[in-house]
Amino acid sequence: MTESSSTVPTVAQRYATALFELAEDAKAIETVEKDLDRLDKMIDESADLKRLIRSPVYSSEEQAKALSAVFSRAEISGLVSNIGGLLARNRRLFVLPDVIRGYRALAAAHRGEVTADVVSAEPLSDAQAAALGDALKESTGKDVKLSRKVDPALIGGLVVRLGSRMIDTSLRTKLNSLKIALKEVG
């Protein structure tokens, strides 16, 4: 298991590994990764899709049917569609985001890359992302692929996770630290 996939729960890692091995056999590692990236973006942007994935209220049949419709509309087929259906049938759809993260880590390791999860208050420009990637590459000695997300609650700054390391330069964290320090003084 790669360092960056060590944060993926065991059940999800098993599915991610199986998906990666099937993609490798089919010579479709990049195709599957692109489908998973699209799916991940859809999950991030849709509260209904998040609810479908996380909620135990829906039956496995309802989850499978809804997920099939989502995949059809997004033109996601093949291995990603199959793993989604399998997760739904096995009542494990809630691990789908972790399966995506685990697959990305395996694909990155296969290419000799490491993946850094970057959360910023505002979307990073291409120049900022390139500069961050270069700094992380210099630090790790490996090619670094950035997985970018936006969380306005950070107020400003970044949170970067690279394997088991986390660098938090967000204003939210700095303000919380200041609040704690002021409580201790007063």
Rank of each mutant, 00 (worst) to 15 (best):
T140G: 06
A12Q: 00
K137Y: 10
Q13L: 15
S59L: 03
I83N: 09
T7R: 15
P152A: 13
A105C: 11
S59C: 04
S177L: 15
N176E: 11
L36K: 00
R14P: 01
D117V: 10
A135N: 10
D143I: 03
S4M: 05
T17H: 14
I76N: 03
K27T: 15
G84M: 05
V70C: 02
S139C: 12
R104A: 04
E62M: 14
S72G: 13
P123M: 02
L162P: 00
A181W: 02
P97S: 11
A64G: 13
I29A: 02
S5L: 11
S72M: 06
R111P: 04
A107R: 02
M166S: 12
I180K: 10
D25K: 10
S5N: 07
S72I: 07
D44N: 11
T169N: 11
R101H: 08
I100A: 07
G141P: 00
F71C: 12
V95I: 08
G156K: 01
A47K: 05
D151M: 09
G141N: 01
A127Q: 05
R38K: 12
L175Y: 07
R91V: 14
I76T: 05
V144C: 07
K137C: 13
F20T: 03
L175M: 10
S77H: 10
A26R: 13
L79Y: 08
A23Y: 02
S5C: 09
V119T: 06
G84F: 07
T2A: 13
I100T: 06
L154Y: 13
S139Q: 14
D48L: 05
L19V: 08
V185E: 13
R38E: 04
I167K: 13
L79A: 08
M42G: 15
R51T: 14
L106F: 09
S177C: 02
S177G: 13
Y15P: 13
R172V: 08
S125I: 07
M1D: 15
E45Y: 03
R38N: 10
H110Q: 15
A153I: 06
R172M: 13
R104Q: 02
A129P: 03
A69H: 10
M166Y: 12
S147E: 09
R14T: 02
L182C: 09
M42K: 15
V185P: 09
S4F: 08
V150H: 00
E113P: 01
A23M: 08
E122V: 12
S72F: 09
R161V: 01
T115D: 01
T31F: 09
G78V: 12
E24K: 15
R51I: 12
